[in-house]
Every structure is written in C-alpha cells, then in structure tokens.
Design a protein around this nucleic acid. Structure first.
Lengths: 221, 221
DNA sequence: CCGCATCCTCATGGATACTG
DNA sequence: CAGTATCCATGAGGATGCGG
C-alpha cells in the first residue's frame, strides 16, 4: 500500500484506498463490468504486470474489489463489491470535470471503446427522451439506450436502433459534452436513420438549461 | 509532473492533473477557501515543503489553481480557479464514499476542523429545513447554516444560533452520515438550545441514508 | 496460454537543512 | 515567509521467469 496520509478526513481516507497510481483506473475498468486479469491488463495500457497484481490485492483487502472463483482454466474474474460500485459517482464526476481536458483531442493517447461506454452515461445525464440509438466508431457499434433511469451503453446486441451516429471518439465526446452540436457545419459525422432520436440524446440541454415553468401543482407519488 | 497515463479517457486525463499524491488534498484545502503557502503547509500535515511547491506549480500550470498577487509582505494567496472549483462535486462524492472508512474512528490520525467544514455539506445534502446551529468541538465553535441552496459551514461569526451540538469530530461525522442518531443512548454528545433545529439538520434521511424499519421519533429530553 | 513473482533501473516522494 | 537544495527511501516501469 502506498503510505497513508494519516488524516482523519474522508477525502484522505478515500485516497488511502484508491489514491495510488492506477487504482482508480482499475476501478474504471471494473465499472464497465467484471474482468479477468489479462483483460484488465489489456484495458490498462501502460500498467506493469506486478503493479496490476499489487493494486488488485490492495483493492481486494480494502473491500473494493472481489475475486471470483477460478474456473478450470485457472481464470478468475475480478469484480467490484457493492461498496466499490459506489465509486461510480465520484468517477463520473471526474469524467465530467475532465471535459476541458478532452477537448484537445486524443493526440497520441491510447483509446478503448469501453472508456466511451463509461463516459457517455456520465455526460448524458438527465435525458428525458426514451430512445435506443447506435454509435459507430471505426466500425465498432455501440448501443446507447436512454431510459428514465439513465443512459446505458453496451456493445450492440442486435436490438433495433432508431438511428445510428457515425463519428470518431473525439467527436462523440464533443457532442456529449456540448462542445459540438449536431448542427455544426463541417463536423465530421453522419447520422443514419431517425435523426430526431439521435438529436434527442445529444441535444438536450443539460442541468444548466433554463427550465420552463409550466405549472401544475406537483403531484408527488 | 507525475507521468501521464497517455489514455484518451476522461478519468485518466483528470488523474493526469489531480492524481498525483497530495494534489487532491491541496484542492481540498482550497475548497475551504484561499490560503497562503504556510497555511497550506499547516493544513496538510505530513506534506514536505518541496512537494507542496511542486504540486502548486503543477496545479497552477494546469489551470486548477491560481496564485494571487504578492502583498508587500511577500505573502501571496493561492485559490482555485472556477474550473478547479468544479472539483467540489467529485471530492464531495469521495467524502460520501469514505463514510465506512471514517466509522472506525480517528485512531492516531491528525484532524483539522476545516475538514469537517468540508465534509458536512457533502454529507448533509437535501436538507429542507432552514436552520442555523452551532457545533462545538473541543471548544471550537462551527456555525452550520442550512438553507434551500445547501449547507454552509464556517467558523462562528456571532450570528444567533438556534441550538448548539457539543460532540467530538467522530460523533459529528457519525451523526451526519446516519451511523449515529440523536436518539442513540450513551452517545457522547450534548445539545443546547433548540434540539429540534439540531434534529432537523441531522435526522433528515438523506439519499444515502439506510432506511431501517420505520421508527417512532424518540422524543429527546 | 493465464496469472502472477522476481529482478533491475530510474523516477518520484519524503525529511530536513538552507536561502533570498 | 515562501520557497530551494540536497540526500536517501520508496515506488513505478519494463523485461523476464515460472508454476499451474
């Protein structure tokens, strides 16, 4: 374990657990879903194998991660505990905070589709419309389902899509964060199918939107 | 700068900026308010002076922190930029996530009153009642003002207090997180003045509050 | 193959002394 | 007061080994 801060403060105690290098990125991978050691290794470009092993042990000891039983191939899956799942909020918050950092584009940085699957629900909060659309990035098709409970992103499972957005990862992030709008001329994307469904997802103003005060006494429950 | 992860992912880019050791704790200090170098040093027990200087430079370069002009005493104050202020959400989230880590009590860890001033608004979200109470910890009096816009905590400024809670930091955190209730027998705290105002702050079930079986409100004294 | 453990090198962190 | 400079300890990164 990296050294403790020895401060009786929630943030310091949290960072004692997930503040070491790579720890939160491992959590990020597991927020997408359970994964085996080599899948984690592949999803965390740049990590050293010993560090992954160390961090997984730390996180397991702390109760953030749990290791499933090994199958006969010797492969055991790592997953978040329910407490570990609780990191989704802070992680989503950091993803939203990082929008200005993503605006400069990918540069030479590595990219994985699953990171976008994590970022989209974080960025597309409060969408009211209920739609299922696809996002095609370099031939890989993501399926984005907006419901009243939030936005779910997964690989396309064959479900019928109302529309499909073809773009690169940068553009998709720009759209999701509002830096790019579907009306932008010259932006490099194509929409197939029901453009309205795609617009409903990306063009809803976020929490900063002026709310029309259509008044009806609020009927609770 | 700590090494970049070189990943085109919001979380990784965020951690490139605030993921180094001590960085988020410096942000924590500045979320309470602007501070000078030596104040930061005092509020961050354990940090080395060269690290504080390094981290401040990094954060300044990244646009998280800005350094005010030096007065004639050579003292310049550091403050968060508006983007840096945006870290309050993720930090609050981590503080809420860390509640189970705080439950084991302070142990030998250092404690500062201002950390509580940061934790209380994070934990006491969604309070509807409008009250101003005091919290007395070892003779230091905090003033907690709950309004419709949230909870503000500061040192007591002489304002009239509806009630005062006398307790230690651990107990206050326990109350704020719901682990301790004002009805608990044997818990070591005392309420002066309007106990109802104090209850209104601490006993409203927040979104994260464990909903036990419905209990008749215990009339305290 | 998968899931690590070991070894080695070098960058980063930590403690303290010192300076404009 | 607000940092530098210095020196040592620790942790990260990369290659490779090795048992199951």
């Amino acid at each position: 374990m990296g050294r403790s801060y020895h401060q009786f403060c929630g943030l310091a105690r949290a960072l004692d657990v997930v503040g070491d290098r790579w720890s939160l990125l491992i959590v990020r991978q597991l927020l997408v879903g359970p994964a085996r050691y080599t899948e984690l290794l592949a999803g965390l470009p740049g990590i050293a194998t010993n560090l992954l092993a160390d961090r997984l042990r730390q996180l397991e000891d702390a109760g953030v991660v749990e290791k499933g039983p090994a199958d006969r191939a010797g492969a055991s899956a790592y997953a978040l505990t329910s407490w570990g799942e609780g990191l989704r909020g802070p992680v989503d918050g950091l993803i939203r905070w990082s929008v200005p950092l993503m605006a400069r584009g990918p540069g030479n940085d590595r990219f994985q589709l699953e990171w976008l699957a994590l970022a989209l629900p974080a960025l597309l909060t409060g969408r009211r419309a209920s739609h299922t659309i696809g996002i095609d990035i370099d031939g890989e098709l993501l399926q984005v389902r907006a419901t009243s409970r939030g936005v779910e992103v997964a690989r396309h499972d064959g479900r019928e899509l109302e529309g499909v957005l073809h773009a690169d990862a940068w553009t998709v992030l720009g759209l999701a964060s509002g830096a790019v709008t579907l009306g932008d001329a010259g932006a490099s994307f194509v929409v197939d199918g029901d453009a309205e469904a795609v617009r409903a997802l990306f063009e809803t103003p976020g929490p900063s939107a002026p709310r029309k005060q259509r008044e009806r006494p609020r009927q609770r429950r």
